[in-house]
Nucleic acid binder design. Structure first.
Length: 510
RNA sequence: GGCCCGUUCGUCUAGGGGUUAGGACAUCAGAUUUUCAUUCUGGUAACAGGGGUUCGAUUCCCCUACGGGCUACCA
């Protein structure tokens, strides 16, 4: 495949949605695979919905996910600026070109007039209520009004928009890379607003103009854009750019876990999983949403998970590094149907990638939790704990959650174990064991086991009946990582001390 | 309502005119393990329905149903 020029073009109206990350990822993979260019364009043509901080958030999120931008906002490039608000003048020129060619027109209708039109059409039972070839001549626009009247309105600075004069007949055939040929009747497409009354272009115009100017070869975007694709194709044609028109690929949507509708922040909140890559504080409400990063998801896990949501390699491989994805990704293996979002699978990926980290990285997770709790811990101890916990964690914070007891002696003991197993024999064995351990300066897990076996043999107890009470005495819990290694990490003094406390606290059942 | 898109295990999906319809997550069972977890082994589980076409359809065509998207001077 020839080097592509693809773009991710979010609007800064809030945090970047996880579905947007997938769209960006697919664009990125294709760019890397073909030795092409990944462009980031900010579509900030809606001044009303502009949210401060959103652009930086998008940049930060993409960087975290490992989706590198070659050209665009934050990077620069030959087609700068890449922020549509800074390209404002450009769009008006093309709109003017369309007007002069008779393909667009001024419309002066007020909001109330537009509402009235829709009401009227609804009540007459029209199939649809659009501003288009059927209705445009009965509205207040430069097609229906006398030229003098139009000139007067313009001269008096009456607010206006520029609308595309959609052909009344014919059809648009679109060859979507994912869906194949899709046909739309021109009569079904309305006269979309191209330039808003505030002088800003709408998405439709800006997107076509910029894709053309930036020489975009493939438009890879969500399926929600498919209905407006015929409008875009028409725009390319009327602007005389049909030969430079990019190829389109409309991605299946990410659906709610129950399959009913697009995945939304609401669903994520309700079901308890993140929807944004990073923490996001809504500047209006002040509400903070926890991101994938802060939940403890690793970027490689998120990327792997997202890549497989709607795409598959056609082999039975499930685990892919970003580099492998770059190698094997292809648009024609993208599914057509929407994919439900299954956070359990994301967790499985996370567990996998977390466990694949080297010891010192895992130890680092523990260390940062410890620091937050103002606990000091030597590196080698943290590494030892990380090693023994490695097979048991899904998120970095689990090292702390599951390893707390290394730093805090138990304050209570698992009542089940106590009630069922803490006999006077057990207590006697543990006390004898304590006496064996106490004088030692170091304790290896093999020594710990050997001493335990010795004591058990001497007091005619089975090791099996001692182990769980021993664990409970040391950790408070009924289950956990390898006990002997746990004892080794704790060291003889701490073990003896905890045993003494337990022996003192727990009353034998018989 | 109109237009467009879609439909294989619970979920993500492979496959494709004749297959024991494959894998992964989840789930269940067994083994290993001092516990739990891990790991290993095994199991349950799917072609939305109806018509065609065909010797044969889950696969191709049509219809229906269901689901989704769009229907703003939002993207």
């Amino acid at each position: 495949m020839k080097p592509v020029r693809v773009r991710f073009a979010p609007s800064p109206t809030g945090a970047l949605h996880i579905g947007g990350v997938r769209t960006a990822l697919y664009n990125y993979l294709l760019a890397r695979q073909t030795g092409g260019t990944m462009i980031l364009r900010i579509e900030d043509t809606d001044q009303e919905r502009f949210v401060p901080g959103a652009e930086q958030y998008i940049l930060d999120s993409l960087r975290w996910a490992g989706i590198e931008i070659d050209e665009g906002v934050g990077v620069g490039g030959p087609h700068a600026p890449y922020r549509q608000s800074e390209r404002k003048e450009l769009y008006g020129r093309y709109a003017q070109q369309l007007i002069e060619a008779g393909h667009a027109y001024y419309a002066f209708d007020t909001e109330a007039e537009l509402d009235a039109m829709r009401e009227r059409l609804k009540s007459t039972g029209a199939a649809n209520q659009q501003y288009g070839s059927q209705t445009r001549m009965s509205m207040r626009n430069s097609l229906a009004l006398a030229p003098e009247e139009v000139n007067r309105l313009l001269r008096e600075n009456t607010p206006y928009v520029i609308r595309l004069k959609m052909p009344a007949e014919g059809e648009v055939k679109l060859n979507d890379l994912i869906r194949g040929e899709v046909v739309f009747q021109n009569a079904q497409v309305d006269d979309k607003v191209l330039m808003k009354s505030d002088g800003m272009p709408t998405y439709h115009l800006a997107n076509v103009v910029d894709d053309y100017l930036m020489k975009i070869s493939h438009v890879i975007r969500g399926e929600e854009w498919l209905p407006s694709a015929p409008l875009h194709v028409t725009l390319y044609r009327l602007l005389g750019w049909q030969n430079e028109m990019p190829q389109f690929a409309h991605l299946p949507l990410l659906l709610k876990p129950d399959g009913h509708g697009k995945l939304s922040k609401r669903d994520a909140d309700q079901l308890g999983f993140p929807i944004f890559p990073l923490n996001w504080k809504d500047p209006k409400s002040g509400e903070i949403s926890r991101g994938y990063r802060e939940w403890g998801y690793l970027p490689e896990a998120v990327i792997n998970f997202l890549a497989l949501l709607g795409w598959n390699p056609g082999t039975e491989q499930e685990l892919f590094s970003k580099e492998e994805l770059v190698q094997v990704f292809s648009l024609n293996r993208i599914n057509k149907a929407g994919a439900r979002f299954d956070i359990q699978k994301a967790q499985w990926f996370n567990q996998h990638y977390l466990r694949a980290q080297p010891d010192d990285v895992l130890a680092g997770y523990l260390l940062s939790s410890l620091k937050a709790h103002q606990i000091n811990c030597p590196q080698d101890k943290a590494v030892a704990i990380a090693k023994v916990l490695r097979e048991r964690v899904t998120f970095p914070a689990d090292f702390w959650e599951q390893g707390k007891f290394f730093f805090y002696p138990p304050t209570e003991y698992d009542p089940q174990v106590v009630a069922k197993k803490w006999t006077s024999t057990v207590a006697a064995v543990l006390d004898a064991y304590r006496q064996e351990i106490e004088p030692l300066t170091t304790l290896t897990h093999t020594d710990a086991k050997q001493k335990l076996d010795e004591v058990c043999a001497r007091l005619q107890a089975k090791t099996g009946q001692i182990l769980q009470p021993l664990r409970t005495a040391i950790t408070g819990g009924a289950s956990g990582p390898d006990l002997m290694v746990t004892l080794e990490i704790l060291g003889p003094k701490e073990v003896a001390h905890r045993l003494a406390t337990a022996l003192h606290t727990i009353k034998p059942i018989a």
